[in-house]
Nucleic acid binder design. Structure first.
Length: 474
RNA sequence: GCGCCCUUCGUCUAUCGGUUAGGACGACAGCCUUUCACGUUGUAAAGACGGGUUCGACUCCCGUAGGGCGCGCCA
């Protein structure tokens, strides 16, 4: 029987789901879907001090927004603490772990001393062989894993290749705290084993842990899962992800107006490739995904490219779907709820009709929101500087001549265009000399979708009134 | 400091010993055009450095430099 793939995404709920975590989740998800396996979700909340329910909710929300789902219920690692303790006890009973009575203060001193003497900072093994009978009274011991001191631990990583650690470089880590709670390295191993995880896909920052965890698997005679350590994502400047850059929760990307499908595509392309393919559907990504397509070197997060991709997805999303996405996006952005409150059926219809022109020039939903502004503007419109300039440069006169033409025109984009072009030809005016003043007065700015579409969507009555308002300015 | 990892255009990447080193974003120039976009055509732009191995290296090996990650009773 062929064992089917089980991956897992295991975030710690100490904050939001940042972009690197999002990509790790995406890779785990894509690999599981591709292999028709499963992706489990486990919340690594063994640190009770730092784990919060809000953070768990934020992670779930972030994954959901990204369009990633998981199999079964999200598991709380902390809820499995007793099993972790049980394994620690087994290790202890088998002589593969021992009680350590060093206090945190002593360990701190040990570290400082090592640093001062420029020696490697490691636990010195004080209690490894010491007689437990000599234990100091009143000190609750932690349990340390008795790591092999000779030989090497090898990881055959699907991304990084064969990585060799000399065992003497790895010290005896604590697997059970003195308060009886398990630590990360023990918990992961036990959980991944118990949950039948076959492939561990996570950031390279866990590479050293991979070695220590491998030793624990061996000690328990458990099968070591396949591993794939993916490179990290850096900020645009090559340094670490900072608040300013990508160290934002994925919900921040939602607020910036990116589409989930664009995020998925962009994130997939960061570190993974399928030949020269740049734009692909999630379906294609799944079909093409493989661990061997993941590169080894870290990459920088490039907002400009993300924007370009997002713009592509915006333009290629049908109007109704995009309108839905827009409506769903509004609650998450400043000023959005106010706009949402003003969208009744009539406005919704206008937005829908304006959508082809709007989405053509929007890179994000935020752009869309801004460019749709003219639909919401109340008369009399306030003109911005550029619009005023256009009116001052002969705009008024142009509109005066144009007004009767529009009044008598068939009020459709096509009809209006025909009428205005005919007038332009007859009067010898360049189309731009007419279109810009119209745009100024109709939208209050100098940029907008095609002017005949604006006229059409705004409607005859509203358009003519806005023009009249504009003429009164002079 | 010690350990591990990484290194192709500005950025994301293709290449799995033999290519004029390809694509995408961005940049620049042109076209299209009622604005802004879109679209389209073209241009510039890369194998960190030094040694090997080989008939032949971006590709394999070693070293150097630079960068990253790890070194918690955090995960």
């Amino acid at each position: 029987m062929s064992s089917s793939v089980i991956t897992r995404f295991a975030p710690s709920p100490t904050g939001f789901l940042h972009i690197g975590g999002g990509r790790t989740a995406l890779f785990n998800w894509a690999f599981a879907r591709k292999t028709k396996g499963k992706m489990l979700l486990r919340i690594e909340d063994t640190d009770r001090e730092r784990s919060t329910p809000e953070a768990v909710a934020a992670i779930l929300d972030g994954l959901t927004w990204l369009g990633l789902d998981w199999d079964g219920e999200a598991e709380s690692q902390f809820s499995r603490a007793s099993r972790h303790r049980e394994v620690a006890e087994i290790l202890l009973a088998r002589g593969l772990a021992y009680r350590c009575y060093c206090t945190p203060q002593e360990l701190q001193q040990m570290r400082e001393r090592a640093e001062a003497e420029k020696r490697p900072v490691r636990y010195d093994g004080t209690w490894r062989d010491r007689d437990p009978a000599s234990a100091p009274a009143g000190v609750r011991p932690a349990i340390r894993f008795k790591a092999p001191q000779d030989g090497e631990t090898v990881i055959d990583d699907h991304v990084m290749g064969r990585v060799v650690f000399q065992n003497k470089e790895l010290d005896d880590l604590i697997i059970l705290r003195s308060d009886g709670n398990p630590t990360y390295n023990l918990s992961v191993v036990v959980d991944d084993h118990d949950m039948g995880v076959t492939h561990i896909i996570r950031g390279v920052d866990h590479l050293t842990n991979a070695a220590r965890q491998t030793q624990i698997y061996r000690a328990m005679s458990w099968t070591v899962p396949d591993m794939a350590h993916i490179p990290l994502i850096h900020g645009p400047d090559g340094a670490k992800l900072s608040k300013r850059h990508g160290a934002l929760g994925v919900e921040a990307y939602r607020a910036m107006g990116y589409l989930p499908e664009a995020m998925r595509n962009y994130l997939a392309r960061l570190g993974w490739s399928h030949g020269d393919d740049e734009i692909f559907s999630t379906r294609q990504m799944i079909d093409w995904f493989g661990l061997d397509g993941i590169g080894k070197s870290p990459s920088r997060f490039d907002f400009v490219k993300l924007e370009n991709l997002n713009g592509h997805y915006m333009r290629h999303t049908d109007d109704e779907t995009l309108l839905q996405a827009f409506l769903a996006f509004l609650p998450h952005v400043a000023g959005g709820p106010e706009m949402l409150a003003r969208i009744d059926d009539a406005m919704r219809a206008k937005l829908k009709r304006a959508m082809p022109g709007l989405k053509e020039r929007a890179k994000t939903l935020v752009d869309l929101m801004k460019s749709a502004q003219y639909l919401f503007a109340q008369r009399p419109l306030a003109l911005d500087d550029k619009a005023r300039q256009i009116m001052a440069d002969g705009g008024v006169a142009a509109l005066q001549g144009l007004l009767p033409v529009l009044t008598g025109a068939d009020w459709t984009a096509q009809g209006l265009e025909t009428a205005v072009k005919a007038y332009a030809e007859a009067s010898g005016a360049k189309l731009g000399k007419l279109a810009q003043p119209l745009r100024a007065v109709l939208t209050g700015t100098n940029t907008s979708p095609g002017i005949f579409d604006v006229l059409d969507v705004l409607g005859r009555e509203e358009s003519l009134k806005r023009i009249e308002d504009g003429l009164k300015l002079s």
